[in-house]
Amino acid sequence: MRKEITIDRYLFVTLYREYKVYFSSLLVMIVSLVLLILFVLPQIQIILSDNQQINAEKELVSILGKNVSFLSSTEETQQSQDFQTVIHALPSEKDFSGILTAIQIAAVKTGVGVGDYSFQVGNLSTTPSGKTLPRLTISLTLNGSISSVAKFLAAMNQSLPLSEVQEISLGDRVSSIIISFYYKPLPPSNFNYSQPIPTLTQQKKDLLEKIKSWEKTVSTSSMDSSSGIGTSSATTGF
């Protein structure tokens, strides 16, 4: 025979009276679990993500610290000189006067007379873009022997701004060359401080010294030619 259970008010009252001593403990357990789930576990997650952030911050601070110490150890005068040299070698825009000075100096040094010249300037209104380095091409007529023109070409190879001879047509008395002078616009100044500042490798330092020696030759020759030592300056047409 099955005993029937009636679910009514009296059942709950009976159950309450029977188990009420457990209720306080049960309440503490429930509150503790709620606290654990709602507050403690999210805190653990926050701490874990904080740890990742701390590692990233430490790395960033280390990079920034190195950048600061590198910049503070850089001598300003020396840096300005280096800057002038590289800008002289690779101007930020079409440097007509620099080009003409370089040609004049090379001509004076090698005893070549410079005749007519023409610039192929290109579009003046647009800024050069793309991966290729912009250049300014000039056609030159040179008066001199083949060997002196060869010396002129060698002198141009060691002069600033940097140039590249594209075409040579050497004749017994008159020669013509097409020569391109490079320039490079200055990049926009949006620094990423979180990146380590690239240092100058020994190879780059050597290159800088090499360019400086060319610059010195140019400035010495420039002084010589301005003091009237050069013989062909009258025929250069500048």
Binding site: E164, V165, L207
Partner: peptide
């Protein structure tokens, strides 16, 4: 200072490339 340094490094890289690729027509003549 930083801008100048970055420009120096960048230009030296470009100059190195230019000098490496530049045809030495004067040596050909010689």
């Amino acid at each position: 200072k930083m801008a100048k340094h970055l420009i120096i490094v960048d230009r030296l890289t470009t100059i190195s490339t230019v000098l490496g690729k530049r045809p030495q027509l004067d040596t050909i003549v010689s």
